[in-house]
């Protein structure tokens, strides 16, 4: 990418985005305008797709609402996306979870990555930086 364009984009990129992966259950807080007023609305669902990189990166979040499947695409670095909270890390073996569209009910469950494993994953870099004295 052109250096000048990279600089323009760097100023717009969010720095505090959580690490997201396909299969995670997330809650996205979006600013919406209603009758001249602005408020934040949460939208919870499973990330079924990640696309693009840098400023143009989007995620597709799927949820089933009143028996109807809804998929919304969020531009991660958009100022309209206020916050993204990861509710649950999911274990999946696909990059795109399109198969969820054909399933309903219990078949749409996604195995959660074990809490211990998650803890290890987050603790690992710390240990790497400051190895325990016993090591």
């Amino acid at each position: 990418m052109n250096q000048v364009i990279a600089e323009i984009e760097a100023g717009l990129l969010k720095k505090n985005l959580p690490s997201l992966e396909v299969g995670d259950t997330v809650k996205v807080f979006v600013k919406i305008k209603e009758g001249g007023k602005e408020r934040t609305q949460g939208y919870e669902g499973v990330v079924i797709k990640q696309r693009g990189c840098g400023l143009g990166k989007t995620i597709t979040v799927r949820r089933v609402f009143q028996g109807v499947g809804i998929e919304r695409v969020f531009l991660l670095h958009s100022p309209r996306v206020e916050k993204i909270a990861v509710q649950r890390k999911g274990h999946v073996r696909r990059a795109k979870l399109y198969y969820l569209r054909k399933r309903s009910g219990k078949a749409t469950r996604i195995r959660e990555i074990a809490q211990e494993k998650q803890a290890v994953a987050t603790a690992a870099p710390e240990n790497f930086e400051n190895p325990p004295a016993s090591a």
């Binding site: 052109n2 364009i5 717009l12 305008k33 400023l55 958009s78 309209r80």
Partner: peptide
């Protein structure tokens, strides 16, 4: 013409823009 990217307007909507030096 340097290339294209996107920026956000006051309302937070993404605008496709071409960067010109």
């Amino acid at each position: 013409k340097l290339g294209m990217t996107q920026v956000f307007d006051a309302e937070g909507l993404a605008l496709p823009v071409t960067v010109v030096q």
